[in-house]
Nucleic acid binder design. Sequence first.
RNA 1: GCGCCCGUAGCUCAGUCAGGAGAGAGCAGCGGACUUCUAUUCCGCCGGUCGCAGGUUCGAAUCCUGCCGGGCGCACCA
Length: 545
Amino acid sequence: MAAAGLPDADPELERPRQPEHGEWATTLALRLAKPAKAAPRDIAQRIVDHLDVPEQVAEVEIAGPGFVNFRLSASYYADLIREVVAREEGFGRSSVPEEEREHVNVEFVSANPTGPLHVGAGRWAATGDAIAALLEAAGHEVTREYYVNDAGEQVRRFGESVVLVARGEELTDDHYRGGYVAEIADALRAAHGADLFADDGQAQGVAPATAARVGELAVEAMRARIEGQLHELGVDYDVWFSERTLHDSGAIETTVAQLTSDGHTYADDGATFLRTSDHGDDKDRVLVRSDGRPTYFAADCAYLREKWDRASAAGTGGGARLFYLLGADHHGYVARLLAAAECLGIPSGRVEIRIGQLVNLLRGGEPVRMSKRAGELITLDEVVEEVGTDVTRYHFLRQGLDTTVDFDLAVVTRQSMENPVYYVQYAHARISSLIRTADERGFDHGTVEEANLLRLDHPAEHELLRALARLPLEVAEAAELRATQRLARHAEELAGTFHRFYTECRVLVDGDEELGRARYWLAVAARRALADALALLRVRAPERM
RNA sequence: GCGCCCGUAGCUCAGUCAGGAGAGAGCAGCGGACUUCUAUUCCGCCGGUCGCAGGUUCGAAUCCUGCCGGGCGCACCA
């Protein structure tokens, strides 16, 4: 820059939207116009004159008001194809330097185990899982974790509900109801006998000990069912963390004691408050109620501390990170959770909470009412069964977290381009078919090293190569932004460029075997890229459709 | 009332973090393309005051302020 007589500045290369503008571009000259007091195009010219152009850049041009565009050479793309073909899998993955590699605890779903998951939870399942996969692809270590609220009032209440249903007695508005409660009652009766629901000399209602005993079993049964529901969606966790263990081990008392000795609490009206309002929260929050029982928030604090210690112990160079994916109905917790983290001495920025907007379940444009009453609850597994895991996952993943998702059963079950997942999968199946056909016909594709990949100069070939080359960057960006839709949209772009290539460029051509071989290896590379993108989204890449 | 999110083509949404080249995609509508590697595909046309009004900037869908619509949340609940 100095040589060109210009102020120092970050070139900030970016990818132009229009193919005519090359693979890379910089707006440097435009931004320097003011400080350098010169016309942007003149500045651009001076930059270009002093530029050290790498081998892989075929052409540099100044365009428009002062953009500098770079075009990559054919040999760059030839190397790209060889690289993609050479790696067995994981094109698109990257690695971070050891000192930046984080251990990320990704907590998602964590719905209360007092009922089966509904459709909305599917969004958090698919998204949390895919973000975890993206973080892994970006080179981080990940723990997928589910926090099980298996302690406290709701367990007692759930147990009481099961007992009452088992006995055929009446429920009140405070109880859980619905077919699944009866199912649990039946299952528990089968496993433990009807005596499980009996009280000793209790005249009315359910004895606390009975409610607690049944509640514990019922919650575990429900948790197991939730685990199964998530597995159906292709989501498997590393850790199912039990809240009860925090109560049993004394971790909650220890945590409250620590917060107190660090001066973050005070007593008022017999209750213990945490000074969260000193750390950005609207008001202080109760840790221990005036009757001595800890709040759920106290358990959250203990859990936060436990998780932080565990993630830190992994000892990665980039340190630990606690990632929470929460629904918009929980965004009220964000401030107090972050405040708690500060009080616990967790470095700022290490607890990251992302809020996702909610899901509307529709059928033919009409809202599906999800009443608590028996029979009207639409569970996640029912939906997955009806529409399939690939469509369900992809539908959630291709939309940003900030957008409310309409999940319309009538639309989503249609196998048309209203479900773009088929478009991407079809591209993969099409390439697979092409390769099968080539083999059947005894097509001599040779090796990728022998192929003359410089023959790939058709516009459709070039577009496909461009999309292919961008995959690693798109993955890295999607991981950085925790934005699954980035990857989904790029997979669609990749599929689109392949479909156009397929239409315009025949691979198994007569008379030009050299070109055919080059195209064959391009198709192989494209299939690998599609398979890798779909793998990160945990969507199947079918060989046939 | 306060806080968070959204408002972009008839519909569903990308793009907003980090301001740049005539604002993109799919669906719907209209018109084309298979005797040849999968037509769940491809090509073309139609379609937009980027909610409204100000401001910052050489340049705003993008940043700031204020409005207007919609969703969600504001417990010694769980």
